[in-house]
Design a protein around this nucleic acid. Structure first.
Ligand SMILES: [Mn+2]
Ligand SMILES: [Mn+2]
Ligand SMILES: [Zn+2]
Ligand SMILES: [Zn+2]
Lengths: 136, 136
DNA sequence: ATTGTATAATGGAATTATTCCAAGATGAGA
DNA sequence: TCTCATCTTGGAATAATTCCATTATACAAT
């Protein structure tokens, strides 16, 4: 917890009670929560917190490269405090999202036709599937 | 045009003037338009058309497997009338999205750890880059 | 061709997601 | 401890998406 506070000290990132609560919720969280998941959690402790504060904090973390926005689910955005490069798999039945830590970059050569028009800087793979729980 | 109408006849898909205009706009369109792009185009001909009609039509086409929702851009959804499997690359500067027709599936083996929890059914790669126009 | 009718589509209104910005809180420096 | 520039908060505004009562479509029967 002190570590968490020290981690964000300085650099123009002000630590408010609401933010500390958001940071604690995100710390080590691998569930890929939505803005609403985060809002509901923070509201338990700070009844007057707003969605705006949640979005503002997520935005600030994104700008610092400490949070990723995951777009695998067309229904809603998910957020990921693990900003090391990795991919995701989503269950088509329950929507659960899990991490795929594997480096495929050596195999992802773009066709010549695309390279004529783009310089590539990165990639992210969305895997689709069914999780063991949903397979009954 | 007659082809377009015959293509959608039957199967409970009713062809209204608004829908025909939407279908004509999407036919062969490789620009990956947003709902608003489509709405603005249809409104030129049908001034009273609503976003609801655009969304309803896109939904109906998705359910028929004739339209893909592209989630590469976290700002907004894009739609793609080419429903054959392919990947995308987006320019980080201007937001332009282009197609990547290449089959990487042979190289995308999931780690054992993930296979224990998921049965994979598909994948989609988001490539990030800078387009030639934006590189100045 | 015309009419009847089951079913599906339209679009204004409601809801939900996201952003804006005036008021208030934070923290580096004195 | 106090000041004050800067940043954050959260109610209100805006934008994105969905709901559902009304209307249109297309097939079937005349
Ligand atoms: Mn992740
Ligand atoms: Mn495409
Ligand atoms: Zn599942
Ligand atoms: Zn560009």
């Amino acid at each position: 917890m002190e570590d968490l506070i020290n981690k964000y000290k300085g650099r123009g990132f002000k630590l408010t009670p609401q933010r500390i609560e958001i940071l604690r919720f995100l710390e080590g969280n691998t569930s890929h929560p939505t803005a609403e998941d985060i809002y509901r959690e923070i509201k338990k402790k700070y009844g007057t917190v707003s969605f705006a504060t949640v979005y503002n904090t997520l935005q600030a973390l994104k700008e610092r490269g400490e949070l990723l926005e995951v777009t695998i689910d067309p229904e809603r955005k998910h957020f990921d405090p693990n900003s090391t490069p990795h991919h995701h798999i989503i269950c088509g039945s329950c929507g659960k999202i899990e991490d795929v830590f594997e480096d495929y970059s050596g195999a992802l050569k773009l066709p010549e036709k695309v390279l004529e028009k783009f310089t590539a800087t990165g990639n992210h793979i969305d895997f689709f599937g069914i999780c063991a729980d949903c397979k009954n």
